[in-house]
């Protein structure tokens, strides 16, 4: 099983973790707010499906709602594996970052 995370995968899984349980549209909104750039929904959903396949997320069908034109949403939640992989990835990066000499000027 592939346990590495791509850059976009990392952001998405972090956002899912932050919300505990989330879905595509919400993730797009969060992404746009945090990253200050646009993203298309299919790109996000693609990542979600891939993470699910890797076993880092699990999904369940939500309830239909009026604001989605009566369509049901798919809710995603991080698994144990997802949580750990994300943590490791962030930790590794933070460690490296800490060793970076500070930029004066």
């Amino acid at each position: 099983m592939n346990h590495t995370l791509g850059a976009l995968e990392e952001v998405i899984i972090l956002l899912v973790l932050r919300e505990e349980e989330s879905y595509g549209a919400q993730l797009v909104k969060l992404y746009v707010e945090h990253m200050k750039k646009e993203i298309t929904l299919p790109a996000v959903v693609m990542v979600l499906k891939r993470l699910e396949k890797k076993g880092m997320l699990k999904s369940r069908m939500g309830e239909p709602s009026a604001e989605r034109g009566g369509r049901r949403k798919v809710m995603y939640e991080a698994t144990e594996l997802g949580y750990q992989t994300a943590e490791e990835a962030i930790k590794a990066k933070t460690q490296i970052w800490d060793m970076v000499p500070k930029f004066s000027k």
């Binding site: 929904l41 959903v45 989605r68 034109g69 369509r71 049901r72």
Partner: peptide, 12 residues
């Protein structure tokens, strides 16, 4: 995937 995508897109 269609229902999920369409719903999400409507919201966005």
């Amino acid at each position: 995937y269609r229902e999920e995508i369409q719903g999400d897109l409507q919201e966005i």
